[in-house]
Design a protein around this nucleic acid. Structure first.
Lengths: 210, 210
DNA sequence: ATGGAACTTGACCCTATGGTCAACTTCCGT
DNA sequence: ACGGAAGTTGACCATAGGGTCAAGTTCCAT
């Protein structure tokens, strides 16, 4: 690969990393090219597809984060604490970084390395769930698939609320965790109530653009 | 209004009712016109905006359904049962009818009559929540706004899962209700576990199209 | 320093959507 | 049964996004 192509690829990777993190994996490719200061033709030339760009830019980052959280979760003495930590942290990652949210939601099945990361993350989740269930702390009818649904819902909610109520998702997660625990504990909520104004804004962005 | 215009308006209302219910309030207006067998120009001519069409077609229907559910919820002896009934039924309405889901999510603030219905529904919800809280059955830190978030999340989830796992939302709602109840009860889940295949399909449609 | 390979560019094509309007057609009161 | 008002149509505008490619530019091995 020629030196100038190398440079352009680097610029594109940098721009893509920024925009994916700011706005999710479905950001327009032309916008990435614009921010990189090259023509969109060059982007197609060097990466071919959105999936390839994602794999080149997002996969390792997401893998690090997800693996880290899983590892820490399993390091907890208490199986329930580990489980709760895992859910909270993954949801936090999703809220903070739309790219990770899209990864966890398993979009873009075309990105091969990324899907491998998803698979590994799912295995870790299975272990964490299994441990909590086995310890008798997690209700036995909660499955891996339920967890994925939870993450999917959180991804959408956190994204819609990112501007207006960036911590609102913590309340939903807290309610859920209290419903998943075998022991009947009602923990204090991590953040105060949402205002009607915030609800209004979030519901608007559930929708279209603004 | 001339007789032919009257007829066209009727055809458009019928087509809109169908498509809104099938695919939500953001269905393309041109498609509504196509199904009605008239030009899209006529649609704009007769209704002007999407919001006006929504108000003419969806509002009364949604109002009936939502009012009905609220009324029945308040008719329960037991405050908790009423609350649980309300949440389950509203979520069911959302799952069965994308148009109602969009109404509950408070999209389309331009549709005036519709927003009035939303307001009334929210008042009913307040009463139902207040009653359950006062009876000591609902955790006291759960607010109206939390309920709206819940509905928002359910709307997205139910819609994404409508084809692949049409009852998956029932599990999420069951987990949530167990977390909201003061009393530590872990009810049986209303439906069996979701399969990995279903998860895959749902996550795909969380995304882009089909 | 030069020529051919590698690379870049931006105009172009496509789809889908919201929206407008001049010219045409239909209705219906007289 | 006729003429003007009312209504309808579809071509047309614009936007936003994905994607292609001929022509022009840049690099680098010789």
């Amino acid at each position: 690969m020629r030196a100038d192509a190398q440079r352009n690829a680097e610029k594109l990777r940098a721009a893509a990393a920024e925009l994916f993190q700011e706005r999710g994996l479905d950001v327009p490719l032309k916008e990435i090219a614009r921010r990189a200061g090259v023509s969109h033709g060059t982007l197609y030339n060097l990466f071919g597809t959105r999936e390839a760009l994602i794999d080149a830019v997002v996969t390792d980052l997401a893998a690090d984060r997800l693996d880290g959280v899983a590892e820490q979760a399993l390091a907890f003495e208490d199986a329930w604490e580990g489980f709760a930590y895992y859910i909270e942290k993954v949801c936090e990652l999703q809220a903070v970084d739309p790219a990770v949210a899209d990864v966890v939601s398993g979009r873009y099945p075309g990105a091969e390395r990324l899907m491998a990361v998803c698979g590994r993350a799912k295995d870790a989740a299975t272990r964490i769930i299994e441990r909590a269930r086995h310890a008798g702390a997690l209700r036995p009818d909660f499955t891996d698939e339920d967890l994925l649904f939870t993450f999917g819902a959180n991804a959408m909610l956190a994204r819609a609320a990112a501007d207006a109520a960036p911590h609102a998702w913590r309340r939903s997660v807290a309610f859920l965790l209290d419903g998943l625990r075998t022991e009947a504990v009602r923990g204090p909520l991590p953040v105060g109530p949402i205002t009607p104004q915030q609800v209004y804004e979030v519901m608007r962005s559930l929708n279209g653009k603004p």
